[in-house]
């Protein structure tokens, strides 16, 4: 029984990081109607910037994480302005250009960091024991920061004027524009917030696993699995889906092989998109 609980808890802590990734991706999709294949690269950059700040500049983990998120968010604004915005009228072209951005960033960081793994120094060492269950402290930190960020995002989206404008643009850009919402600015900030969340996930996973130039590829695939199963653009779905994926993975990698788990994930994507294209939690909007 204890082992089941332990495996479940391990899954939930990793699941929270998937939630951060998936929320960023689903936020960008919900507001801008685009698929960002480069999302995993912002996650990777978040990990590397955290690494640089902690190791090269000897800053504390939390300061480094905040700096990494800020730098990635600014970088995202630049990329959105220069690369994505001119193509926004054609979602397929945006998809292709995001692939190009992904390849570019991946090889840029491979060039600067090589193919090695970099481990970010742990913010808190040791294990916290409660009722026979083990909670590694670095995972507790990751979970705590994720929950804080999620709560902040919730307040931003549902309790501020800016959040209301974002939801309005997600529902109907033209009507939102008629109400005086500046769409291009909402796009810019949404993209930046989404990428910042990915960077946070990257910075938090760095001490648990490690960072390398190609870590984004697998992460973005997982985020895709989550948001498609949950429903593209659904925030509630991304949270439940991310946690569920973490738990399922934790169980299957303990008791089964991981490769079959990946295959099941992709098969579910196809099945869900055929049967209920809006996803399990999505609102039934048919998009052309």
């Amino acid at each position: 029984m204890n082992i089941l609980l332990q495996v479940g808890i391990n899954g939930l802590t990793i699941g929270l990081l998937y939630v951060l990734m998936a929320l960023g991706l689903t936020l960008i999709f919900g507001v801008m109607d685009i698929i960002n294949f480069a999302h995993g690269e912002f996650y990777m950059l978040g990990a590397f910037f955290t690494y640089i700040a902690t190791v090269k500049f000897q800053m504390s983990f939390f300061t480094s994480l905040a700096i990494a998120i800020a730098v990635v968010a600014i970088l995202a604004i630049l990329i959105e302005r220069i690369v994505f915005r001119p193509l926004l009228h054609s979602p397929l072209n945006v998809l292709i250009v995001s692939l190009a951005v992904s390849i570019f960033l991946q090889h840029l960081s491979q060039l600067s960091f090589g193919p090695d793994n970099y481990k970010i120094p742990s913010p808190a060492l040791g294990v916290f024991v409660l009722g026979g269950l083990y909670f590694p402290k670095e995972r507790l930190v990751a979970a705590g920061v994720s929950i804080l960020l999620l709560f902040g995002l919730y307040l931003l989206i549902f309790h501020t004027k800016f959040g209301r404008a974002m939801r309005a643009v997600a529902q109907d850009p033209e009507s939102a524009a008629l109400q005086g919402v500046k769409i291009s600015r909402i796009y810019m900030y949404s993209f930046s917030i989404g990428c910042g969340l990915a960077a946070a996930a990257g910075g938090l996973i760095g001490p648990i696993f490690s960072a390398n130039a190609f870590m984004g590829t697998l992460a973005v695939v997982k985020a895709f699995v989550v948001i498609i199963l949950a429903g593209l653009g659904s925030i509630r779905g991304a949270i439940i889906g991310g946690l569920a994926l973490g738990v399922v993975e934790s169980f299957s990698s303990t008791f089964l092989g991981t490769q079959y788990c990946d295959m099941i994930g992709f098969a579910l994507i196809i099945l869900v998109l055929i049967v209920k294209p809006s996803g399990l939690f999505g609102t039934a909007i048919e998009k052309a």
């Binding site: 698929i35 695939v221 994507i269 052309a288």
Partner: peptide, 26 residues
């Protein structure tokens, strides 16, 4: 899957491609 269009179709084919490659691997 052809009744799905646009981005959704791209994602379905992406998932299918990954399944095929995973099958070659496993």
């Amino acid at each position: 899957v052809l009744r799905i269009t646009g981005i959704y179709f791209a994602i379905v084919t992406f998932a299918f491609g990954e399944i095929v490659v995973l099958a070659f691997l496993t």
